[in-house]
Design a protein around this nucleic acid. Structure first.
Lengths: 175, 175
DNA sequence: GGTCACACGTGAGAC
DNA sequence: TGTCTCACGTGTGAC
């Protein structure tokens, strides 16, 4: 069922070639994580390469975007393809399905909490059976488990500490 | 704090496309409307499409990806920044928030349907206020919910190269 | 021998 | 001043 992942692992070049074990100074603006296979060859003494810095910065940005994309992929339960566009497409479908279902659940709760207990059980069961088989009638398919991937994230959290914290300018978690 | 509220319409170049608010973004037509006056001056006699075809194809792909990204942006209610990485970040946060909230609502419904009416309303309201303060459709943001730091953890996980897809193994422990 | 999808480096533009 | 983000074209590898 998850053979998609290995396929994915072959498909994209899996640019995981960055050693991330550089817990360094608390401000991490940008660090070149890739071992430079090309020489700088700028004999300017304290030569911070003018153009090479841009290159590594760009590469870093690109990598960040890919990581985000992977994170998005892992959050969406059913991904069909690994195309960087299909990932976003599935994510959109999934979001819309969740929104739809959530509004429906909310309406159901609202109705259910303000209902005389006579007709309560009837309408409840009806609605619930209606939306269990598939998420919505407009979607093609989506929605496996409602909240399973969050657990996966949690278990990732066990194995690994937080490293990247950049660009997430000041927002404190409230929990 | 972090509110960098600017006019974001000028940031990216062309945001004209992207229809809104109807589902079904699928299978859009691909068209090329660029000025194809690139002469590659191929030394070969037959100048069919030596490299220019690749160029237009690549450009088309890039445009498709941007379009998907805009679509993703439009379905996420609260977008902080327009950075192509922040869009995905907010989308992930939103998805996780929706998943969490949806499971919560589901549990609530389940509890509510199999509960005598006496203690029903009490526990319901309690649960709702406790962990979903912004449940309604007018929620201010559920971005900065419990799932903010999880994205970073995921990113760390990906950048480490642990992309084997082991993450999808079903585990049902619910917090 | 084609297309598809990708990463890469580079110039431009916006802060 | 520099830094950041972007689109672009090009080469490569996988179907």
């Amino acid at each position: 069922m998850d053979n998609v992942d290995q396929e994915f692992n072959n498909y994209w070049e899996t640019n995981s070639f960055l050693q991330n074990e550089d817990f360094e100074y608390d401000s991490w603006p940008l660090e070149e994580a890739i071992s430079g296979s090309y020489d700088s060859s700028s004999p300017d003494g304290a030569a911070s390469s003018p153009a090479s810095k841009n290159i590594v910065s760009e590469r870093n940005r690109r990598q960040k975007l890919n990581q985000r994309l992977f994170a998005l992929r892992s959050v969406v339960p059913n991904i069909t393809k690994m195309d960087k566009a299909s990932i976003i497409k599935d994510a959109i479908s999934y979001i819309q399905g969740l929104q739809y279902e959530e509004s429906k659940l909310e309406a159901e709760i609202r109705e259910l909490e303000s209902t005389p207990k006579s007709s309560l059980s009837f309408s409840k069961d009806f609605d619930r059976d209606l939306l269990v088989p598939v998420t919505s009638k407009k979607m093609k398919q989506l929605d496996s488990g409602p909240s399973r991937s969050l657990i996966e994230v949690l278990e990732v959290n066990f194995s690994e500490g937080n490293i990247h914290g950049r660009e997430d300018s000041g927002s404190e978690c409230n929990m």
